[in-house]
Write a protein that binds this DNA or RNA. Structure first.
Lengths: 144, 144
DNA sequence: CTTGACTCTCCCATCATGGCAAGGTTCAGA
DNA sequence: TCTGAACCTTGCCATGATGGGAGAGTCAAG
């Protein structure tokens, strides 16, 4: 008879230890502890010997956090999003406001980087890049 | 007779203290000390009482650093660039290589951020953003 | 001499993440 | 039952570029 398999990549039986929660969520164990210290997961239960025990709901929340990080939200924003997610009386406008602000931040940062890129590509274009010392890139950095 | 004016925004007479070097270069005094600890400025001379004294050449180098930071180069890259700038036997290819790598880095980061932006704008588009709780943004974060 | 502006060094904080060390726990196999 | 591997714990330090502040010393003008 096959006893419960404990396999990492298979259906886990909950609650799970931190390593398994990490594998299931794609978040490193280090970050799991960190998120806990940021109070993103509420009370994480422990075994008698102190091991953290993650429920299926915890892992769900961790996946939510992971996805939010992948979209570039800061931990402060994610804390807000998780709260809204867990609050059935939220207004979708609150969520949209956070997301819109993040998009605006991204837009600004992208534009700043594109401006750098334009300047640099202009300089690159003028630098012959051989073994001679003359270099319009350095000239620009030194004088602009 | 007007004695030397020491004016911040006028022609300074060198060497200058850190505050004046900061104003002339646009780099904060805090960062001047930091750059010194990174050995970007060589030996900064001191008065008997320990005040730093910046030469005109130092301020020129600081402007170079400032401009490089504004273009997004890391301090490690800037250290290389400053060395090349001060080395008359440099090959412009060395400079171009650094700049090209930086442009490639920027390209990658911009693309990553644009990908985030596309996803987010798609989600924003579907969220009505009113006082009802239904929210496709949260749905996506929770399930994707 | 006093006062205010300036400077000095040192320490701490950011933000999300990784690494390491020293020690305790769990479980499977011999 | 013992042992070793694999796991977990806490705690500290590091990143990169920057800012803030404390406590003390310096300088120049009044």
């Amino acid at each position: 008879m096959p006893s419960p398999p404990e396999a990492s990549h298979d259906r886990a039986h909950f609650p799970v230890n931190i390593g398994e929660a990490s594998r299931l969520s794609g978040v490193s164990a280090k970050m799991l502890r960190h998120y806990e210290s940021l109070a993103l997961l509420g009370q994480v239960t422990r075994t008698d010997s102190g091991y953290r025990q993650y429920s299926e709901a915890d892992v769900h929340t961790l996946r939510f956090i992971k996805r939010s990080r992948d979209l570039g939200f800061s931990m402060a924003e994610i804390a807000e999003l998780v709260n809204l997610w867990h609050n059935r009386r939220r207004a979708s406008a609150s969520v949209k406001r956070i997301a819109q602000k993040h998009v605006d931040d991204l837009t600004q940062r992208i534009e700043a980087m594109q401006a750098m890129q334009r300047s640099l590509q202009n300089l690159l274009h003028h630098c012959h890049g051989d073994d001679r010392p003359d270099c319009p890139i350095l000239d620009d950095l030194a004088s602009a």
